[in-house]
């Protein structure tokens, strides 16, 4: 393989252009990633190509997009795994600002809804809060979320119910609920168990399938459904709300 064809989604709503795909020929180099290909286009062929990137190492969450039918991070996707034809589109369910750049405002607003920070009512110790290795283990993986938006874009419920809070926010909520130092379960469950909350999830696992960090968002949603139900049965007895 010495060249790759990139078909890249182009659209600038402001300029009232029609959405379309532009075709670019990019010389292939060994180890090339989709992001490298897009940056080649951007720097050599058309400097105005709009996309987001930062770390180029799969950790900042900037470059999630739809690549040959799957939501994934452009920077950690090897061109050689996809072949000579690459078709790139922006994340779904979010308004397009320009080309591959979408407006993530609602994604962040929904993230903020679940109180994504440690809530504790205990006195702050002089040193650290103690946490056992086993309790820390409950946070492994789930703290890896890079808020890339792939799960949100892949979720069919987001498509049909626009206020659905979304897998990224539920995974984040669960990250804190699982944390032995946190006392905010009750506050969060009121939001999570509400109208736009976890019970809208149809458990189709789309979020989990696309997550580049292998975060089990579907599992988190199931856990939260159980907790919410348990909370209802125990008449909101806060002390019983730890898994």
């Amino acid at each position: 393989m010495d060249r790759v064809i990139f078909e890249v989604f182009r659209f600038i709503p402001e300029e009232k252009s029609e959405p379309h795909f532009d075709r670019f020929e990019v010389p292939y180099t060994k180890g090339m990633t989709v992001l490298q290909g897009l940056l080649y286009i951007q720097s050599k062929l058309d400097g105005s190509l709009g996309l987001r990137f930062a770390c180029r190492a799969g950790i900042c969450g900037s470059c999630a997009m739809h690549i040959n039918g799957v939501y994934r991070l452009a920077c950690e996707t090897q061109v050689s795994l996809l072949g000579e034809h690459i078709r790139v589109r922006p994340l779904g369910h979010l308004p397009i600002i320009k080309d591959l750049v979408v407006d993530m405002t609602e994604f962040w607003e929904k993230y903020k809804l679940v109180k994504p920070y440690l809530i504790h009512s205990k006195n702050v110790p002089e040193k650290e809060f103690l946490q056992s290795v086993d309790d820390r283990e409950k946070l492994t993986r789930i703290v890896d979320c890079i808020l890339c938006g792939a799960c949100y874009a892949a979720c069919p419920v987001v498509d049909t119910h626009k206020d659905y809070i979304g897998p990224h926010a539920f995974a984040k909520a669960n990250r804190f609920i699982r944390d032995s130092r946190d006392d905010g379960t009750f506050e969060r469950l009121r939001i999570i168990g509400g109208e736009d909350g976890v019970f809208r999830c149809h458990t189709v696992f789309s979020c989990q399938e696309v997550c580049p960090k292998e975060i089990n968002a579907s599992g988190s949603i199931a856990e939260l459904k159980m907790l919410t139900t348990k909370a209802a049965f125990t008449a909101f007895d806060r002390s019983k709300l730890k898994m």
Binding site: I12, E14, E15, Q42, S43, K44, D46, G47, S48, L49, G50, L51, R52, I97, K98, D99, V101
Partner: peptide
């Protein structure tokens, strides 16, 4: 070297 001169996400300008 950019087809569009708008500065919105225009990396040619940032470059």
């Amino acid at each position: 070297n950019a087809k569009s001169k708008s500065l919105s996400y225009n990396y040619e300008f940032i470059n």
